[in-house]
Amino acid sequence: MGFAYDFNIHENEIVNDPSVHEVKHVYRYEGNSDPGDSAVVYGIKSTSGKKGVFVSGFSANTNSEAARVLNKICIEGSEQCKI
């Protein structure tokens, strides 16, 4: 599907200019035995045409600013964000 750009390496792009990013896909993964072993994979497309992924832990105390920004983008309206 062409989501090859690694937004984890370039998370400052999301933090510095969230309005140019759209969450197209969200996948949530859980560990078998430990609820703390959860992750969220965001498929992101920017207005410049970059398509990539951002992987984050799935918990209330996630310390990534980019993860908080992506969560806010999801809360503000993308239907793909329903996880």
Rank of each mutant, 00 (worst) to 15 (best):
K50I: 07
G36W: 09
G49S: 07
N12E: 14
V23I: 13
V20P: 00
S78Q: 12
G77V: 10
S48T: 00
L70M: 09
R28Q: 07
E79F: 13
Y29E: 04
N12M: 13
T62P: 02
A39I: 05
D17N: 05
M1N: 11
G57Y: 09
F54R: 03
A67Q: 06
N61P: 10
E65M: 13
G2V: 08
G49E: 07
S19N: 03
G52L: 01
A67T: 10
A4R: 14
K45R: 09
Y27R: 08
G77P: 10
K82M: 15
I73M: 07
V23K: 01
E13T: 03
V55Q: 04
C81F: 07
H10I: 03
G49V: 13
V15M: 08
T62L: 08
S33D: 06
G52T: 04
Y29C: 00
A39P: 00
Y29F: 07
G57T: 14
S56Q: 06
P18T: 05
K24Q: 11
P18I: 05
V20N: 14
S38R: 03
A67S: 08
K45Q: 10
Q80L: 12
E22C: 12
G57W: 13
S38N: 01
R28T: 07
Q80T: 07
D37I: 01
E13S: 01
K50V: 10
N63H: 12
N8W: 06
F58D: 10
N32V: 01
V23C: 06
V53L: 11
S38W: 00
V15A: 02
I75D: 15
S64Q: 02
N32P: 06
G52D: 01
L70D: 09
H10M: 07
E13R: 02
C74N: 07
N12L: 12
K45V: 15
G36A: 06
D37V: 02
Q80M: 11
